[in-house]
């Protein structure tokens, strides 16, 4: 027994901070999340992107033990979320999409309330974030603007120095200045410790800045999961000019999205390779081919459009 225990501890310390295995959730007949498998290594930041209803929030809610898991497993820091939630919650921080909390409390009361549940609460972290965000602890929650509420939410989620931070579209509907402050707060936390972060977002610029890896969800399924830099280097937008009156004959299997307009054939491919381009030119009646890099925002749109186009 003791060896098994030793092994569990070993995997817990070295294994990924977050592990999803075949995670599935159905609502009625439709799958909100289907067979989702991915891992977030310790100390890295994963940006979870996808259009509305892609299953980002459902995934995060299952991770937080707020939704039951229909099939598959989710583990945080090596612990199964359906069995160890109270222990896991001591070691993670969570910022929900809607920052709703006790409106009648003062910030100081809300801090005191939250603080009492954590063994590792650090007043210094809390105070420095209060200062950074310029929050007045005597203010009541109901007097706070949305931006201030989001900052309070972050402060409450990180002051117990969590090993994992989970943010569910934390910055939606915030003005650019508040976003900047919020990201600054998150970065400070990430820099202070080797904190693992999972955040879902619509703002791809923020994902590009904050995330090591990106996971793209569509219709509850994982489309892409890779390092952001790798994705940006490997994916290309190809523009080919077709000869008069002909249509493309061969389409690379790596195509994410394509469009033909007059003589212009646009394709987004991932990954792009010289071999692919050679074959493209050899197999198709094209005059010339031009290759450009493509930003995360466009890449995301192409993935979504490509999916919608195919039945």
């Amino acid at each position: 027994m003791s060896t098994i225990k030793g092994e569990t501890i070993a995997t817990e310390a070295n294994g990924p901070a977050i592990e999803l295995e075949g995670l599935t959730k159905h609502y009625g007949g439709t799958a909100a999340v289907e067979n989702l498998t991915l891992a977030v290594p310790r100390g890295t930041t994963l940006g979870l992107i996808g259009p509305n209803g892609a299953g980002k929030s459902t995934t995060i809610k299952m991770l937080m033990g707020m939704l039951t898991i229909d099939a598959g497993r989710a583990r945080i820091l090596g612990l199964d979320v359906s069995e160890n939630m109270p222990a896991i919650k001591q070691r993670i921080g969570y910022v929900p999409e809607l920052h709703q909390t006790y409106r009648w409390m003062r910030i100081s009361e809300l801090i005191g309330f939250t603080r009492s549940f954590y063994k590792t609460w650090n007043d210094d972290v809390c105070d420095s974030l209060l200062d950074l965000f310029g929050l007045d602890r005597r203010k009541k929650v109901k007097q706070l603007s949305k931006g201030m509420l989001t900052k309070v939410s972050l402060l409450l989620a990180v002051s117990h120095e969590p090993e994992v931070l989970i943010l569910d579209e934390p910055m939606s509907g915030l003005d650019p200045l508040v976003r900047e402050e919020f990201l600054d707060g998150v970065l400070r936390v990430v820099c202070e410790r080797q904190c693992t972060v999972l955040f879902s977002s619509h703002a791809l610029g923020d994902v590009q800045r904050m995330a090591d890896n990106v996971a793209m969800l569509y219709d509850g399924k994982l489309l892409v999961h890779c390092p952001v830099d790798e994705l940006l280097s490997s994916a290309k937008r190809v523009r080919a000019v077709l000869r008069d009156g002909v249509l493309p004959r061969w389409q690379p299997p790596e195509t994410i999205w394509q469009q033909v307009q007059r003589r212009e054939w646009l394709l987004t491919v991932n990954p792009c390779s010289p071999a692919l381009l050679d074959q493209l030119q050899a197999e198709n009646p094209v005059e010339h081919v031009e290759v450009n890099s493509v930003g995360l925002e466009d890449l995301f749109k192409d993935y979504v459009k490509g999916r919608r186009g195919t039945p």
């Binding site: 791809l204 610029g205 923020d206 590009q208 800045r209 952001v228 830099d229 940006l232 280097s233 890099s293 493509v294 930003g295 995360l296 925002e297 466009d298």
Partner: peptide, 12 residues
Amino acid sequence: KIDPNNHVPIFL
């Protein structure tokens, strides 16, 4: 100053 919307990877 980095440009998060640029298609050049941020580390580059």
